[in-house]
Design a protein around this nucleic acid. Structure first.
Lengths: 147, 147
DNA sequence: AGCTAACAGTTGAATTTGTAACTAACAAGC
DNA sequence: GCTTGTTAGTTACAAATTCAACTGTTAGCT
């Protein structure tokens, strides 16, 4: 497959384009949750997994979101400090602790979910509804089996 | 625009899907340039801009790639240490220095460009050629005006 | 029971990044 | 020529991330 020709422009490289679009599209939203709740990207992700699925362990969040356990551990500690979540140690298996949002955590989740919805709508507006759906499908496919 | 309904699933959020696909699709390639040349992502990006466009200043690379000048500065320093690039201070404006790949730098660029081409082809294989072109166009559009 | 391996989660040290302040060089106005 | 403002690039310090080693707990095997 490897060729000698000089006909490949790395600016077209999909991982490059994906990274740039990901960075660009995250920037504004990131500024919002940082300003409103003083949280970082990993913390927002933990928040949204708990908001969406209810109680989960750190391990499960990491597995679903593709985030390393040390990052989760530190994000959970900070969210706990800010009283956005609480931990409950499992009776059956005392290594595991189930995480759940507090009232404040759920309020933040609901707020940010709404902001995300609006922001997503703006992006979809740029692309057209049908194209945006195509995009989501392709992004899921690229992630599947590779993460 | 903001709604009270509960009908938005953050797993569909485009920045989230973009970030996951970007991470997933970068991982393998990242492992390759790290293992072969001991370089990081920003260093690879600097390398590929220089390989593609020839001599440029750090500022220009940063502007084109959307990378902050401090990251560029450190990436350039490391690439210089590894003898992948050399600097030439401009006669006309002695604040500026033009960067250019050395022989070793060009060899690394050529090698990695080929790897990138093959890797890109594998991703395109997953999506289909036409869909992949659509994807690139959408990613460029999302980046445009937002970065 | 006693031993070993695996697992959930945390922590410390080294690396990397981000923010702001800095140096050196140029440019424009007076 | 001298001030003031801007620019290219670097650096210092704080914050975040990674990697490996660690604690405490469970499960399996003999």
């Amino acid at each position: 497959m490897t060729s000698q020709d000089d006909d490949f422009d790395p600016r077209d490289f999909l991982p490059y384009l994906l990274n740039r679009a990901a960075d660009a599209s995250s920037l504004e939203f990131q500024a919002i949750y940082k300003a409103r709740y003083g949280i970082l990207r990993t913390e927002w992700r933990v928040l949204f997994h708990l908001g969406l699925f209810g109680g989960m362990t750190a391990k499960e969040i990491g597995a679903r979101a593709g985030i390393h356990k040390t990052k989760i551990s530190r994000a959970v500690a900070r969210l706990e400090q800010r009283r956005f979540l609480s931990r409950t140690r499992d009776r059956r298996d005392r290594r595991r602790e189930t995480l759940a949002l507090t009232g404040a955590g759920r309020a933040a989740y609901n707020d940010l979910r709404d902001v995300a919805r609006d922001y997503d709508a703006a992006l979809v507006g740029d692309l057209g509804t049908e194209e945006a759906e195509r995009l989501r499908a392709m992004l899921r496919q690229l992630t599947r089996g590779r993460s």
